[in-house]
Simulated assay, not measured.
Amino acid sequence: MGGRRRHARPASADDLLSQLGRLTARVREEIEVQRARVELAEALQRGMLPSTLPTAPGLRVAARYAPARSGLDIGGDWYDGFRLSDGTLAFSVGDVQGHDVEAAAYMGQVRIVLRAVAAMGAADPGEILRTTNDLLVATDNPLFATCLFLRFDPRTWTVRTSRAGHTGAVWARADGMCGVIEHAEEEIGLPLAVMAGEAYPVTEYRFTQPGALALLTDGVVEGPRFPLEEGLAAVARVLRDGVAEEPETLADRVMEVAECTGHSDDAAVLVLSHDGPEACQTAGAAPGIV
């Protein structure tokens, strides 16, 4: 007599609810783990950003940082500022490839190397970037970073900048002029940690009247709704219209541009509001006066 074929018992409502509960708990646990990872990266990143920034008579500085807005990513954007032994001030902004804890940690490493190289006596921004690049290449880390490094001399009001694949600084003057600090294509070096021996040319100019300068990352000026050029032009207008305001207000308004771009990347901005020394009105000025 043949055995009777047994059919699987249909799942009851209680069985389905129990299974759904287990799946929900697993998803919730994975979300919590990811959220904890993001919070760790954000805390790591914010902890590595400077708590204070250097100033000088006639120069006021403010910075803002906003994390990535996708909810699960964290970037490697940074800003920094410190005083060098010769009395000049150094400022930098940059962006590490990637959106995770490793990118945030690498950002801290790049900042430390930049500071260490500058502290060893290399005053030229191009030399600082060149040495930093070679040191980072030697670590054999797969990540890379873009960077804009600026050195300001409060005695001469001369500014020297060098770029490692990074967005140019935006400027505005009290006379209503504004724009982006232009570098010829051949004057922009590769991002840091890409290739050893890379050269980083320097652009020099001088502040001649009251104005503002914004160093920023591409999360501020580029996104799905904004091409880079349009974002830079929007920042230039913000600086021009608010050139007489304090840098904290300007930094807030520059960050509002990021809200218009539809960006999902993190964003950092460093604003230098400056007075033009009367001596510069008659002294011979360097090329690229702003």
Rank of each mutant, 00 (worst) to 15 (best):
L150R: 12
P224A: 03
G284C: 12
S92D: 06
Q281L: 15
L150G: 12
M107T: 13
G179N: 04
L272R: 02
A285V: 14
A267T: 05
G231S: 06
R35I: 01
L135E: 14
G288I: 06
R253V: 05
A286H: 14
Y65M: 01
D134K: 08
Q45Y: 07
L135H: 13
P10Q: 06
V202I: 10
V110M: 13
A36G: 10
V269G: 07
C147T: 11
A118T: 03
R155C: 10
L17K: 13
A199W: 06
G75S: 11
A193S: 06
Y106R: 11
E256P: 02
D77P: 08
C280D: 07
A251V: 02
L129H: 12
D175L: 08
E198N: 12
T161F: 00
G21T: 15
S51M: 08
D266N: 07
D266W: 02
P224G: 03
D14W: 09
P247A: 10
S273P: 00
G223A: 02
T261P: 01
Q109L: 15
V254W: 05
V93F: 03
A103D: 05
R37S: 13
D95W: 01
A214M: 01
L136C: 12
G87Y: 06
G75C: 12
A25S: 15
A43N: 13
R22W: 13
D175E: 09
Q97Y: 01
D265L: 02
R46D: 09
V271Q: 03
P142N: 06
L49Q: 13
T156N: 08
N133I: 07
Q97H: 03
A283F: 13
F82S: 00
L216G: 00
Q97T: 11
F82L: 00
T203Q: 12
P247R: 08
G189M: 02
Q19M: 14
F144N: 04
P125T: 08
G81E: 02
S162E: 05
E229I: 08
L192E: 01
F149G: 12
D15T: 09
D86K: 07
L49K: 13
H166T: 00
G71V: 02
P210E: 10
A56C: 11
T132I: 09
G58M: 07
G197S: 09
